[in-house]
């Protein structure tokens, strides 16, 4: 009998449950009636005989993934560290039950990074301001970028990243710096033309693949 207590349309329902007989994960309340059906149904027994080796083959043939798990984890942990270091204080308070001193902090490294990226940022800010003046467009500065609510990406660059690399990298993704660096080395980049939040998710994912990008996350609404 099924869990609801009704008598199942035995053959069709037993047939549908055979994969879970084959993998041993059939619910206890189903096992009894399915097995009873198997005793009298040669067609279902034949199907089970075919499914069990298929399950065995699929389980055994799933080859281990070639990429280094250790390297992948290191990459993720760097991203977590960067995010938590870049997180504004009010956001950091949202992390539940956070224990002081347990979360990763690499203050010295970030101070060094902040000095470099600040220099890059000042130079780019000057270039951006000049460009905006030339074309008479909307003038975005560090000050009014804080109130920017459009699509964009928050970024932290590796300490050895040069201005040229930053410019090229952002240009490849049709982005430009509109703010930064903050006191934790965080820049904000916005799309050069019309864009949307989905495009920024893709851009952030692509930027994270670059060795010069330590952190890239789309701006939250």
């Amino acid at each position: 009998m099924t869990p609801s207590g009704r008598i199942p349309d035995t053959h069709a329902e037993a047939w549908a449950m055979l994969p879970f007989v084959a993998n041993g994960r059939i619910a206890p309340e189903d096992r009894e009636w399915v097995e009873q059906h198997l005793v009298s149904c040669a067609e279902c027994r034949h199907e089970l005989d075919a499914q069990r080796p298929l399950a065995q083959t699929m389980s055994a043939s799933a080859a281990p993934f070639a990429t280094s798990e250790q390297r992948a984890f290191a990459k993720l942990w760097t991203r977590i560290e960067a995010a938590e270091n870049a997180m504004p204080e009010n956001d950091a308070a949202e992390i539940p039950a956070r224990v002081a001193g347990k979360a990763p902090r690499r203050t010295v490294r970030w101070l060094a990074a902040a000095v470099v990226v600040q220099a890059v940022g000042l130079a780019l800010l000057g270039v951006t301001a000049l460009k905006n003046t030339d074309r008479g467009g909307t003038f975005r500065t560090v000050t009014n970028a804080e109130t920017y609510r459009g699509p964009g990406v928050r970024l932290v660059f590796a300490p050895d990243t040069t201005m040229t690399l930053v410019t090229d990298l952002l240009a490849r993704h049709h982005l430009e710096l509109i703010a930064g660096p903050g006191d934790r080395g965080v820049f904000t980049a916005a799309p050069r033309g019309a864009s949307n939040a989905d495009a920024m998710v893709s851009a952030a994912a692509a930027l994270r693949q670059d060795q010069h990008v330590l952190f890239a996350e789309p701006l939250r609404d």
């Binding site: 449950m17 994969p19 994960r25 399950a55 699929m58 389980s59």
Partner: peptide
């Protein structure tokens, strides 16, 4: 197993994932 993989590649993604979850990872319905 290589022949089986070839067969699995012919399945629509949703069907293939259901089968992978059942047989490769051993999940219940």
């Amino acid at each position: 197993s290589q022949w089986v993989q070839l067969g699995l590649q012919r399945l629509p993604l949703e069907q293939r994932m259901a089968l992978e979850l059942a047989y490769t990872l051993g999940h219940s319905c």
